[in-house]
């Protein structure tokens, strides 16, 4: 028996929004410790890694580890039927070929359940090596989303240059070029608005704007985002999900031909 309950369906809706642009379907690996998802997009350029810890749920029971392959468009249709403040419970029997979502309104006057067929997904898992990153940038997630959206209008590739002083995002294309420089701030009283940089050595890497835009669909999950970079390794974009876990996106850099 598997059962996981969250008092706010809004959180699960946001998690789904954060992954469904990159993935059509995904396997949710459920165990004692929580729910994990790891999947590459179809073109094998980016990877989504989601962890929802069991202790972050209002109720969590997983007698036997199970993998639930879900079509994310179908899951999205179901979650649209929940109000943001509904309690949501995800249920499955051991070895089941369906999963059930139960939505309960706050006053319990409305209870609905939606059963969805599970899929057998032959998903590849990747071993992600531990990396000591040369640069770790922390900034407001809304600011990152704004920069990516603004710059993507002017080119397909963004160059991210990080030094101790700050981080520069640059794009060039047919129209011309655009640069956004963010300086490290010392907003100790407004930590949520600060830009901080931990740098071992400067890094400059190029990435496809289109993927960064997809990653920013996770913005509603967290006020902060963390970008980790080292030369010649994938970028890691991480959003913490308060008291529940995190979503990390990995993106292979573009290299000069």
């Amino acid at each position: 028996m598997f059962e996981a309950r969250l008092t706010s369906a809004a959180t699960l809706k946001k998690v789904l929004e954060a992954v469904k642009e990159l993935l059509n379907e995904a396997s949710f690996d459920c165990s004692d410790s929580g729910i994990q998802l790891q999947a590459m997009d179809n073109s094998h350029v980016s990877l989504v890694s989601l962890t929802l810890r069991s202790d972050g749920f209002d109720k969590y029971r997983c007698d036997r580890s199970l993998t639930m392959g879900m079509n994310l468009a179908s899951m999205s249709k179901i979650l649209k039927c929940a109000n943001n403040d509904d309690t949501v419970t995800i249920k499955a029997q051991d070895d089941a070929d369906t999963v059930t979502f139960v939505f309960e309104s706050k006053k319990q006057e409305k209870i609905s359940d939606y059963e969805m067929k599970l899929m057998n997904l032959d998903q590849e898992h990747l071993g992600i090596p531990e990396t000591d990153f040369s640069c770790v940038i922390r900034m407001p997630s809304v600011e990152f989303a704004r920069i990516v959206r603004d710059l993507a209008q002017f080119g397909e590739t963004v160059l991210i240059c990080c030094t101790k002083e700050g981080v520069k995002f640059s794009v060039s294309g047919d129209v011309g070029s655009a640069n956004v420089k963010l300086a490290q701030t010392n907003n100790f009283d407004k930590e949520e608005e600060s830009v901080s940089i931990e740098m071992q050595e400067p890094v400059s890497l190029s990435f496809a704007c289109q993927y960064l835009i997809s990653f920013t669909k996770a913005t509603p999950l967290s006020p902060r985002v963390q970008l980790s970079m080292s030369s010649n390794v994938p970028l890691v974009v991480e959003y913490e999900i308060a008291e529940l876990g995190y979503i990390r996106y990995y993106l292979a850099p573009k290299i000069e031909d």
């Binding site: 590459m40 990877l47 071993g127 994938p234 292979a252």
Partner: peptide
């Protein structure tokens, strides 16, 4: 123009 690398160049399949 820079070309897009594949993620599996960096991470091994397990």
């Amino acid at each position: 123009t820079p070309i897009q690398n594949d993620l599996t160049e960096y991470f091994s399949l397990i």
